[in-house]
């Protein structure tokens, strides 16, 4: 009846569909889903950002400012990424060097220190180490009070 079997067609197109018994559920959380539903009920025009009524000259000025801001940010990012890349390369080189010159020191540098905990107050990854780089005798503020 069919000139090509389903298997052949599926293989050709590469579509796979796993069978599951229960209802398919979405990956997003119910609260997110609620927001999505609410937004879908609002008309598209109301979700558009409001247009400022500018004259032609001011609109072009505004675009130029936006262009310059984008350019400035791009350059800043590029510069930062280049520095980070350099830092990483130099760390890597130093470690390679250490591996060859003194394997013991390399081992020691890479040794896991299980007792020393990462300060949990330090939440944001920073570009530079702080003036006091590591607090070895860390106590949680709540423990201090006791």
């Amino acid at each position: 009846m069919f000139q090509q079997s389903r298997k052949v067609v599926i293989e050709q197109t590469g579509v796979i569909r796993d069978f599951i018994r229960h209802k398919r559920t979405s990956a997003i959380s119910p609260s997110t889903q609620r927001v999505v539903n609410q937004l879908s009920a609002i008309s598209a025009t109301r979700k558009q950002p409001k247009l400022i009524n500018l004259c032609n000259e001011d609109l072009i000025k505004h675009r130029t400012i936006t262009n310059a801001w984008k350019l400035y940010n791009r350059k800043k990012n590029e510069k930062r990424m280049a520095t980070l890349q350099k830092q990483y390369e130099s760390i890597k080189n130093a470690m390679e060097d250490l591996k060859h010159t003194s394997p013991e020191l390399y081992e020691a540098a890479n040794k896991k220190e299980t007792e020393k905990r990462f300060p949990i107050e330090m939440r944001i990854p920073t570009e530079y180490p702080p003036t006091k780089p590591w607090i070895y005798e860390y106590t949680h503020p709540s423990e201090k009070e006791k």
Partner: peptide, 22 residues
């Protein structure tokens, strides 16, 4: 009766210079 947004000219001057250098 047209009014420009605040500080648009000052910002534009800086932006123009930056883009022109580029």
């Amino acid at each position: 009766s047209y009014h420009s947004p605040l500080l648009i000219d000052e910002t534009f001057k800086v932006a123009y210079d930056l883009l022109e250098q580029e």
